[in-house]
Design a protein around this nucleic acid. Sequence first.
DNA 1: AGCGCAACCTGGTCGC
DNA 2: TGCGACCAGGTTGCGC
Length: 258
Amino acid sequence: MPELPDVEGFRQVLMACGRRCVTDIEVRDAGVLQGVTEKRLRKEGEGRRLGRAWRHGKWLFAPTDGGPTFVFHFGMTGSLWCCSPDEPFAAHDRLVLTLDDVCSLRFRDQRKLQGVQLADDAAVDRILERLGPDALAVDRAELKELLSGRRGAVKSALMDQSVIAGLGNLLCDEILWRARVAPRTPARDLSGAAYRRLHVAMGRVLRTSVSAGCVPPRRSWLTGRRDDSEPLCPRCGRPLCSGRIAGRRTVWCPHCQP
DNA sequence: AGCGCAACCTGGTCGC
DNA sequence: TGCGACCAGGTTGCGC
């Protein structure tokens, strides 16, 4: 589920907590800890004051003053919540940071496909060096530069976090549909006009989705139709196609995306 | 270089 | 009601 817009929403959750101190860490399921034990997480994390949270692609970083950074990745089912410490736990609340004894920051995740790390600066750098530029920061020339050397399907390239960070399956389908680009087109075969449309679509889809906190399932968007039993294109009304590209379910309109 | 696939996990749905 | 098969918006690592 969580793509760039969702993770940006989780960053806002963190920002709303402010620069509070981590007074307690409760590991309710150690299965979400990555590369850190509960013992070390508590030893190095408790007592730290949170700094300004930042995001790159689908990764969320919560640095602490003079200490390590809490690093969150939400996989397909993760989310971040802030509530009163009195609030009953949800079934999949895996990690709880209590902030100044007044906020309860909860990492919730059904499937535990990714999780939480505690990283020093070098470890943060190692994460970043595997990632391409954040999708929100890519301009038109850079988009073309990143993709145009690729022989593979444009959707595969857009999905590849080491090329551009932040786009997931829904966003890619939505952007390609808006730009009228067929998902299997080899990236290097795209025209300059197609790259222009792709960049415009990426910007618009991202900005709207960030405002909504997710890729909105509007009926006027592809995303709002893809789970229909017999989905129709919101633009031309013809049936949508569904198939597998890069191992992921892909929905497109064969008429609008020739 | 880039694709397909399995693996990591859990839970919902569908057909029998 | 139960059970297996299959599916789901993510990432990694492997083989080809």
